[in-house]
Amino acid sequence: MSTPPFRAGHVAVIGRPNVGKSTLTNALVGAKVSIVSNRPQTTRHRLLGIASFEAGQLVLVDTPGLHRDQGKSTASAMHRMMNRAARGALEGVDVAALVVQAGRWDEADAFAYEALSNAGLPVVLIVNQVDRLKDKTALLPYLAKVSEGRDFAGVHPISALKRNGLEALVETLLKLVPEQPAIYGEDEITDKSQRFLAGEMVREQLMRQLGNELPYATTVEIEKFEVDGALLRIGAVIWVERDGQKAIVIGKGGERLREIGSKARQHMERLFGAKVFLETWVRVRQGWSDDEAALRAFGYHD
């Protein structure tokens, strides 16, 4: 019996904000390469997660949530750049994975499907968070309704968080990518540097701990990343837009900033497999999120 040919290709992971795209990417890669919180638009950058299997390799393009562009008058520079990054993820990929929330299909999901369909890509529908459905008997009618009149290359109900349904999903995705050798080494998990990932780990804690107060007014710049033997020395600047926001991030007696730094350091040590000495500072730059030059200086690209 002959061995099936090895397959490898790029998969755009697309969907409206906060449906679990980054959780799915991390689950398939088997490591945390994309930060996660329960806040929409946690993912701000296009990021590659490299998932290697015996039968092939999937290069997952995790993106900011895809949504209708509101136009310059109402959308911030950050919003416009994130939307361009999501749309740009469709260039040069072999297949699109449209992630939706189980039991929900609205205009934003339909808009994402149309964008993928118009790009001429095979679209695999991934119905995430099926474990949260209270009425499991509603799943089949929901799948039938969503699939009606739409050409999906596969439909997979899954729970990315609990890693349920992933084997069948991987099998479908691998059938849709070309027969070719691996694009990356099997020990590679992302195209991003440790420096970039360190900044994301700090930003994740900002989103998790300050989501109600400062959901989008913060960003992180890594000023220092030095390897000192078995120790990583990292200096992170947290940028905010107003002095009042700076006080919120620091917290009473610096308590909140210490907690953010402590949690971020723990995640870095697990991901990098090294001891980390992390220093954090908070600085103010007025209106950075609506300034394209500032966004590019902070590493945002479309």
Rank of each mutant, 00 (worst) to 15 (best):
245 Q>Y: 04
65 G>V: 03
149 G>I: 10
92 G>E: 13
211 G>F: 03
185 G>S: 14
2 S>M: 10
283 R>S: 03
217 A>F: 01
206 L>Q: 02
55 A>C: 00
171 E>G: 04
58 L>H: 06
146 V>C: 12
106 D>I: 09
146 V>K: 04
166 L>F: 06
146 V>T: 03
22 S>A: 09
41 Q>K: 07
153 A>H: 05
6 F>I: 07
261 G>D: 06
207 M>D: 12
87 R>M: 14
74 T>K: 15
102 A>Q: 10
43 T>H: 08
146 V>H: 04
151 D>S: 15
231 L>N: 07
237 V>Y: 06
194 Q>M: 13
103 G>C: 08
260 I>L: 04
162 K>C: 01
212 N>F: 11
36 V>Q: 06
244 G>W: 10
65 G>R: 07
228 D>F: 01
33 V>W: 00
16 R>W: 04
259 E>F: 04
204 E>L: 01
223 E>D: 15
273 G>T: 08
146 V>Y: 10
34 S>A: 15
91 E>T: 13
38 N>Y: 03
1 M>R: 13
48 L>P: 01
31 A>H: 08
109 D>S: 06
208 R>N: 13
5 P>G: 12
106 D>N: 14
127 V>P: 05
1 M>L: 12
234 I>V: 15
93 V>F: 05
41 Q>E: 02
71 G>T: 06
13 V>T: 12
53 F>I: 12
133 L>R: 00
34 S>K: 04
105 W>G: 09
255 E>R: 15
282 V>A: 01
